[in-house]
């Protein structure tokens, strides 16, 4: 049995708004194992991202607790990396500047962090673009920078919040394939949020299907298909159908 990395224990989250309290996360208990790729899959506006933010420490849980490697998470920290849907790249920094940002603010020497950043830039296939600014890159390339930036801090856990949501269907296939290649080369514990079932089945070791607001875990699926997976393999399509039929309809 592999090691338990992230433990969400009875997590709930309520936002106070001007119209009263909104309960976004119901009561979620979830475990993520070391070097596992867990996909959080759920409909439209349900609390997927909020759950992810609670796990990464960007948001505080209202009740319950999140622990990573036994440490309780209550604030952001560099042992966790995040890849954002809207990339959240720093537009005034070059690709190199973005990727080396984490090591830099943590005080790593220039030569050391440059070397490390270069390694991850190469890993995501952006060699030659070190001095480009984010707005000079395509959507897919920007997301690669985001992945390299998150990796470069060498976190224990990577959180990915619908990183490919804004890409076209074909670029998305490419990014999914490449993400798996990168991950197989540099294994990390990954929690990946998506509302795309094809993406979920392609990437996941395990899929946690979430309900609509307030979010709870409806059911879980182990995906044991061998990698690289084939989008039109009959078993792939069967799983896809089966899991889609379980998920709540978005409004």
């Amino acid at each position: 049995m592999s090691k338990e990395m992230i433990i969400c224990d009875n997590v709930s989250k309520t936002f106070e708004t001007s119209r009263g309290d909104v309960n976004v996360i119901g009561n979620v208990s979830l475990t993520v194992n070391e070097n596992e790729l867990l996909v959080l899959f759920g409909p439209g506006q349900c609390g997927k991202s909020t759950l992810l933010n609670c796990m990464s420490g960007l948001e505080r849980v209202t009740t319950g607790s999140v622990t990573i490697n036994g440490r309780t998470i209550d604030s952001p920290g560099p042992d966790r990396g995040v890849v954002y849907q809207r990339t959240a790249l720093f537009p005034w920094l070059t690709v190199m500047g973005n990727v080396e940002y984490g090591p830099k603010v943590r005080g790593m020497s220039k030569s050391e962090r440059r070397e490390k950043a270069q390694y991850y830039i190469n890993l995501v296939g952006l060699e030659g673009f070190e001095n480009s600014y984010p707005n000079q890159l395509s959507g897919g390339m920007q997301q690669r920078v985001g992945i390299a930036r998150a990796y470069c801090n060498e976190p224990d856990v990577l959180f990915m919040d619908e990183p490919f949501g804004h890409l076209d269907a074909q670029t998305r296939y490419l990014m999914q394939e490449d993400l798996i290649k990168i991950w197989e080369k540099e294994k990390r514990t990954v929690v990946f949020v998506t509302n795309n079932i094809e993406e979920a089945v392609y990437l996941a070791d395990r899929i946690a299907v979430l309900t609509n607001c307030p979010t709870t875990v409806k059911t879980e699926y182990e995906i044991n298909l061998p990698r690289p997976r084939d989008y039109i393999d009959p078993e792939f399509l069967r799983l896809r159908e089966e899991i889609s039929s379980v998920v709540d309809k978005a409004l």
Binding site: G44, H166, D168, N195, I197, A250
Partner: peptide
């Protein structure tokens, strides 16, 4: 022109 590109798959199907 790609009207459903950014939508949830479920919603897209519908």
């Amino acid at each position: 022109d790609e009207p459903y590109g950014q939508l949830d798959v479920e919603l897209r199907f519908r």
